[in-house]
Design a protein around this nucleic acid. Structure first.
Lengths: 350, 350
DNA sequence: TGATTTTCGGAAAAGGTTTTCCCCTGGGCC
DNA sequence: GGCCCAGGGGAAAACCTTTTCCGAAAATCA
């Protein structure tokens, strides 16, 4: 049964608690008590145990601990795409918070394929005490089913009406509204919106806000797009063709792609067209012009997801939802529209 | 001993192999054999076992498996900073490859603090079969010590002369050389180099190449900088002050920061000054002008690290090193220097 | 048909740790 | 000085799975 023990360079097979006990002249129980502090141990044996632990370089076997305790001290994180700086930041937030509580982080990347999210989460939940689901694209139905199967499930940027799943989500509605207000105040009347992935809950939340904002004084033209910079690059031409005076992108990542395309075409931002993003990723203030966007603290999002996770009981009873309100940051990519006479509110052709 | 069993919403305590055995009317051994395929089982019992597994939703307890097998089917990845798209991509490469082999990925972020790398790797190695160390900033001495303590250690972008540690590394020398050649051919004679973190092995590798490239026909002026875009932004003024005609940045991430600063100052790239990066991160072809750089397939780096990891024996005997040669991509950020008379090679003031 | 090999499946041990249960000893109090 | 209580520490069970060992039954061959 012994584990692989090949070659001459093989290190000694790792000390067990029994080795430590023998070395210290005590029972395994005492060693355990010293290390976990579950019960007081008098000074003499404690000294000897600590010395033996140090001498043997003993560290308890997590598998054995996990087997007995029924917990893993690990949290799983499922993200659609690690290449997307947004998700990388959220992951960083979770990891740092978890590390602080002596938890490990397991990560799975679904490659933006909604079909694999379920399996990834389920698999991770075997190895972790629970799972943080980042912007899941899966169906509401699948999500509810998953919530029943995974002991502690927390969502980021996804709210679920039927099943009370703990979640931390950006208030996309408020963000979109503030962008609309900003564009409206500048005098824009016709805005092209580069849509995110149709399956994304955050996209649906944005749509709701757009319906509220759009109307008499702001006309929204929808352009199918996606969630990556490549998508934004591709959709830029269609946005220009609408003759809108401003382009509102699903995210910064998308906006940067559109910005690059505008630059290729010699279309000047913001002189000829205004452009807005969403999220305020690090690179958005490195491009020229710097991007007007709404700022979301992505690491904080991850940190809060962790807090929700660690507050959740195993029976998944509670389902509090934390909402984070993003803040508009006006930079260089928005300006008064080209034909800059401040129209009275009525003069909009529908 | 029982695990937490609170409230009424508590789900049943997870079926064990014994429950399945009872349900199927066989022994636990038979269930195990059906599931692992370690020994053939005749059709009748197999059917019953599979049915029971499905009915009970049984999935083996990884802790128990790990305890018995002595392996975890997990790989740890330690990165300096997940916010840096470079490391996020490498992580993605490792994760995807590992996923393919039914391995989990554990991640730790050291926040660019070299002092915490050792502990992070050591801790991760308890929970995983080995560790991939991304661009470790730790001392050579610490690294060797770590290699002795971690069963399977693989480095990315860090070579170690004394201890043979499996590693996959970009050929920074070749990359720097190709950039120098390119700048030289354009007619640049004086280049400011924005230095990376002093502790980074990759920075030392670059320095070596610079010493070889610099000389009669190319003068290199060193500017202390760092590894993030903020560092690049800060160092840009000093680079300008050297009156160099080109700036070579430690990385794309740094170059983007410098580019933003040049834009703020109204210094035109590449008309007034040329700028190069390193790595070719996704956003480098989204900025204006698009960045001349050398391209490194970062996900591939991660994938190869995984391959090295899975090829490594537990006794850590072998230490092959894979070198990846980056390729120069000439985009819009480099051009002939401002005072554009193609000087004869000799007319350089030292 | 009887002997021998193969196949199939059950019992039980092993893996490392925590925790419960219990015993022993020492100190305090009357 | 005796009794009781408390505290410290050891033995062993339990956690769940895999695998070895072995027995029994079935299949093969002479």
């Amino acid at each position: 049964m012994g584990r692989a023990q090949t070659g001459t360079g093989a290190r000694p097979p790792r000390a067990t608690i029994i080795d430590v006990a023998r070395e210290a002249g005590v029972s395994p129980a005492t060693v355990s008590r010293v290390l976990t502090g579950s019960k007081p141990v008098s000074a003499g044996p404690e000294q000897r145990v600590r010395a033996a632990v140090a001498r043997l370089g003993y560290r308890p076997n997590p598998a054995a601990q996990g087997l007995l305790r029924g917990t893993t001290s690990a949290v799983g994180v499922v993200v659609p795409d690690l290449s997307n700086p947004y998700f990388a930041e959220v992951l960083k937030g979770v990891t740092n918070a978890a590390q602080h509580a002596d938890f490990r982080t397991l990560v799975a990347d679904t490659g933006e394929k909604a079909g694999t999210e379920r399996d990834a989460a389920l698999e991770l939940s075997r190895w972790a005490d629970g799972v943080v689901l980042c912007s899941p694209r899966m169906s509401q139905w699948e999500l509810s089913e998953l919530a029943a199967a995974v002991p502690r499930l927390v969502c980021v940027n996804r709210l679920s009406r039927d099943t009370p799943i703990p979640a931390v989500a950006v208030d996309f509605g408020a963000g979109v509204a503030s962008i609309c207000r900003h564009l409206g105040e500048l005098g824009h009347r016709r805005v092209a919106y580069l849509r995110g992935p149709g399956r994304a809950w955050s996209e649906r939340a944005r749509q709701q806000a757009l319906r509220a904002a759009g109307g008499a004084d702001l006309e929204i033209v929808q352009i199918p797009c996606g969630s990556s910079s490549v998508d934004g690059h591709r959709a830029a031409d269609a946005a220009l063709a609408t003759r809108a005076t401003a382009v509102m992108a699903f995210s910064d990542y998308v906006a940067l792609g559109a910005l690059a395309r505008f630059d290729e075409l010699g279309v000047s931002v913001p002189d000829e067209i205004s452009l807005t993003g969403f999220d305020d990723i690090a690179l958005s203030c490195l491009v020229s012009p710097r991007l007007t966007t709404v700022t979301v603290n992505k690491q904080d999002l991850g940190r809060r997801a962790w807090e929700l996770f660690s507050a959740t009981e195993d029976d998944g009873a509670t389902g509090p939802v934390v909402t984070v309100t993003p803040e508009l940051v006006i930079r260089g990519s928005t300006a008064v529209p080209a034909g800059a006479d401040p129209l009275p509110r009525t003069a909009v052709d529908g």
